[in-house]
């Protein structure tokens, strides 16, 4: 039995029992950037003429949407790399990123609905941006369901990777939906030339995106640690099972 254990390296978990300097710095950066983003959202950014105060939801709505795109892009990357290299680490990255992406998409939809209720008078509009975002949300919920419903880990990883690549086609559809169809959704005010966003708002938005990116990285790290620890637990259970069978 001993040699069976020896060839499986005793894996060290990131930010394990030792609370590393790296994770301390990460949490400090998270708190700092979040605090700054909140300050700028409510104090620094000027009030908007037409929409009054509720426009400030923009500073969480837009970063959530962008981070969802990023997260789903990372899902596709992890999936491609898993199929190409077969390292479980890539699959863990894809899974973790998908879950976070779904959470950010949910937040995008909810903040958008609240903003819409105030500006349009209704919670939901049958608008290309909104509809495609909802479809994207369903697509990645389906991805998480597929992971939940396939029992064999190696089959699950392969099937999820294939879907993780196929599902990413929904991301450009959401992104370009405002260009392709007439939309009620505000146009992207950063990428469009001469987009009329005052400098303070733009700075606040960019800083919020930065803060959300830090948040994404922290969540990703935690989520991947969770996956790693869970797979380590099942590995140890397997070793114990073996020992029991050897003793018999």
């Amino acid at each position: 039995m001993r040699e069976a254990l020896a060839h499986i390296p005793h894996r060290e978990l990131p930010s394990g029992r030792r609370f590393g300097l790296g994770s301390a710095a990460m949490y400090a950066l998270l708190l700092l950037s979040m605090g700054l983003a909140i300050f700028m959202t409510f104090v620094y950014a000027p009030a908007e003429r037409v929409q009054a105060e509720v426009y400030r939801l923009l500073f969480v709505h837009v970063p959530s949407a962008w981070l969802a795109f990023l997260a789903f892009g990372v899902v596709a990357l992890g999936s491609v790399m898993y199929l190409a290299r077969g390292r479980q680490r890539w699959d863990r990255l894809a899974h973790a990123s998908a879950e976070i992406g779904v959470m950010f998409t949910t937040l995008t939809l909810v903040t958008g609905a609240i903003w819409g209720r105030n500006v349009w008078g209704v919670w939901w509009q049958w608008d290309p941006r909104l509809t495609t975002t909802l479809i994207m949300w369903f697509m990645y919920t389906g991805y998480l369901s597929l992971r939940a419903y396939v029992d064999d880990p190696s089959i699950r990883r392969r099937a999820a990777s294939v879907l993780g690549i196929a599902a990413v086609v929904t991301v450009p559809i959401v992104w370009f939906s405002v260009e392709w169809w007439r939309s009620l959704h505000p146009r992207p005010s950063i990428t469009s030339p001469g987009g009329g966003m005052p400098g303070e708002m733009l700075v606040t938005l960019l800083l919020s995106v930065g803060a959300f990116t830090v948040f994404y990285l922290v969540l990703l790290r935690q989520r991947m640690t969770l996956e790693l620890a869970a797979s380590e637990v099942s590995r140890l259970r397997e070793i114990m099972q073996d020992q029991r069978e050897d003793d018999r």
Binding site: E53, V54, S64, L107, V110
Partner: peptide, 19 residues
């Protein structure tokens, strides 16, 4: 104005609670 702030509060509440 008050409903405006209410929705703002609501929206941020959801986000911070969620994240």
């Amino acid at each position: 104005m008050t409903t405006d702030m209410l929705y703002l509060f609501f929206g941020f509440g959801v986000v911070w609670l969620g994240v």
